[in-house]
Design a protein around this nucleic acid. Structure first.
Lengths: 190, 190
DNA sequence: AGTTGACTAGTCAAATTTGAGCAGTCGTGT
DNA sequence: ACACGACTGCTCAAATTTGACTAGTCAACT
């Protein structure tokens, strides 16, 4: 499905021509980390590939002060078409992304009850921290905030709440979980 | 983090020596699709790499009837250590995986209200279908089902419920969402 | 006998991501 | 002056994933 391409095309369509680092920066600013983690490597490789496919095109190179030169890309007509197609694909796709913690849990039978409880407590604390961050952010808007942005934040908040609920359930069942194999395996390397 | 490696090491540690296709098959049987999508390409490349690193080792090659030969791998002592490390890593990591639908939604301002409502209705139907599947499955157990397996299914069920709640919220705000840009863009290529 | 369809066990090229790094610049202190 | 850390704009190798494909076997029909 490739979210990186969707992100690049969408950003160029909205804001107009941009260069690589600008995309990366805006991704941080606009809470983009919620829907897509844009790493530099992926970003630039997507830019090169999109340009090679003619979906975006280098418009000019700029130079601000003595900083490294940067290439400004704009979206092409074909890129707009691809953007609509990718967006439709993303909207149609309903997939619960697998969570590695489930995999880990299924393999933790021989972990001691205390060790597992420690992990779970840590996870709950981390989730609560994230939740309260969102609650603070929800109050004050950022520039150019749209209804869609609100909904994205709300989505994250609701998912955190669901995670918290599940974690509490796991804590509830902890005794049963480790009842079978209760060997000593308190701490792992890593 | 690499869930595929964790899956392979964990499965070999639990069930004992196995060959590639067996891992792939068991992944289907044990609801593994919930936590990890094991595609053949990823699976075999993980096997080769784990073997090269000495975390698993080819024990023998079998041949059942005239079917293709298959290589049986077993986990090594070092592999067991790596398994514990990977599991601890997965248990520590708390990350809300970004959902592409958020990205798509943030770029759907110029989509018509009806088009967006159509997508959302479809998504809700798909989610409800998945939910009722889980509800049926929850009643009858599968062989070797553990408490952890129950919890994994429950996890998926709770996440679906959260998704449903959010989707209804989006439908609620739909008028506001498309209020700004309401051009005609009813259907996209796809 | 021949065909169909599903399963077995795995390969491969191409796309993509990861994670680190590079060569420079800027701002801030000291 | 100059050291320091953070930022800018981007590159690169290595790891990994994707998705289609190979080359055969088996059971069941027709």
């Amino acid at each position: 499905m490739n979210p990186t391409r969707l992100f690049v095309l969408g950003a160029l369509a909205r804001h107009g021509p941009m260069y690589g680092h600008q995309l990366r920066r805006d991704a941080r600013i606009d809470r983009t980390e919620l829907w897509s983690e844009v790493r530099p490597g992926s970003l630039y490789s997507a830019l090169h590939r999109l340009a090679a496919e003619g979906l975006i095109e280098p418009l000019r190179t700029e130079q601000a002060g003595q900083l490294p030169a940067r290439t400004v890309y704009g979206i092409t007509a074909e890129g707009e078409r691809e953007l609509r197609a990718l967006r439709a694909e993303a909207l149609r796709e309903v997939r619960l992304q697998p969570d590695p913690v489930d995999l880990a849990l299924a393999m933790s039978a021989e972990l001691s009850e205390e060790a597992l409880r420690g992990y779970l407590d840590d996870r709950i604390r981390a989730l609560q921290a994230q939740a309260s961050q969102f609650d603070h952010q929800r109050e004050r808007a950022w520039p150019d905030q749209t209804v869609a942005d609100d909904l994205v934040v709300e989505h994250a908040r609701m998912r955190i709440e669901a995670e918290l609920g599940w974690h509490r359930l796991v804590l509830d069942q902890l005794a049963k979980l480790t009842a079978a194999g209760s060997a000593a395996d308190g701490q792992a390397a890593g």
